[in-house]
Amino acid sequence: MSDKKSPPIGGVIERGGTAHEYTTGGWRKFKPVVDHEKCINCLICWVVCPDSAIIAEEGKMIGFDMEHCKGCGLCASECPDKITAITMEEEAD
């Protein structure tokens, strides 16, 4: 809420992209780990990630945004079978 006394009518936030401020990394039970030696930068993981948590720069898979990654494992599951560069590991408590 921008103004504590008069919250915006209907909960409309007068800015865009505010979901980024809501971190969901704490929801994780398993975390994705990438082996850059194996990765072919096909970026299928970037396409399928439901939370935009794959960091890609200049056509290369760099890593994960662990503030937002919920650990759903889609990236690991969709990483090509012959490559399997992404694997899921149990999140340490």
Partner: peptide
């Protein structure tokens, strides 16, 4: 209207989540 979803120069978030504290305020 005060806001428009189509006004890309002044973006707004409509339908945001409001949990325990703010929900009741709205």
């Amino acid at each position: 209207a005060k806001n428009s979803l189509l006004d890309t120069d002044n973006p707004v978030t409509v339908g945001a989540m409001a949990l325990q504290e703010p929900y009741m305020v709205f």
